[in-house]
């Protein structure tokens, strides 16, 4: 089962390698990982997507929490949450496919961020599955390069 885990940690050298070392050392897997500073510059927020049964996810969250530089660990997928990923795709766009590419981008509410005579660079944001969907659709037209950010996520605010 897929889990999205959010980790607040000290923004110091070496902290990220403590997290990744923990995963490789204990044989947990990381599907994606994204990390950046929070409002408080001394603290970073790391979002990682992993897979495992209940016991493994329990170990992952406990082991993360055990790291001295980790402040807070939340398994976001325990509750309602929003997740987003961004992808940059360089897709072939020649005379006969340019219009088709633009239509697809429009359907996915993407943006063209770089244009060359033979290609577009496209930016698309959405859930991991939406990102995967546009990749699958553009693939037959000819994707030259993709870069994905990995998922970031946030728990939904309480409705009460």
């Amino acid at each position: 089962m897929k889990h999205t885990i959010s980790v607040l940690l000290q923004n110091k050298p070496g902290v990220l390698s403590r997290v990744t070392g923990l995963f490789s050392g204990r044989g947990f897997n990381i599907e994606s990982l994204s990390v950046a500073e929070t409002l408080e510059p001394s603290i970073s927020c790391l979002t990682l997507v992993t897979r495992g049964d209940e016991a493994i996810i329990e170990q992952i969250t406990k082991q993360l929490h055990k790291l001295i530089d980790v402040i807070k660990v939340t398994d976001i997928s325990d509750s309602e949450y929003v997740e987003r990923e961004m992808v940059l795709i360089r897709v072939k766009a020649e005379a006969q496919t340019r219009a088709e590419v633009l239509r697809v981008i429009d359907i996915f509410r993407g943006k063209v961020v770089d244009v060359s005579p033979k290609s577009y660079a496209v930016e698309v944001t959405g859930s991991a599955s939406k990102v995967q969907a546009i990749i699958d659709i553009l693939k037959p037209i000819g994707i030259q390069e993709i870069v994905r950010t990995g998922t970031i996520a946030m728990a939904r605010a309480s409705k009460k």
Binding site: P13, G14, S17, R18, G21, L22, G25, I68
Partner: peptide
């Protein structure tokens, strides 16, 4: 040595 001992210390510092 901080990198080397990361997985075999409770914590370490440079």
């Amino acid at each position: 040595i901080v990198g080397i001992t990361r997985p075999c210390t409770k914590h370490n510092y440079l």
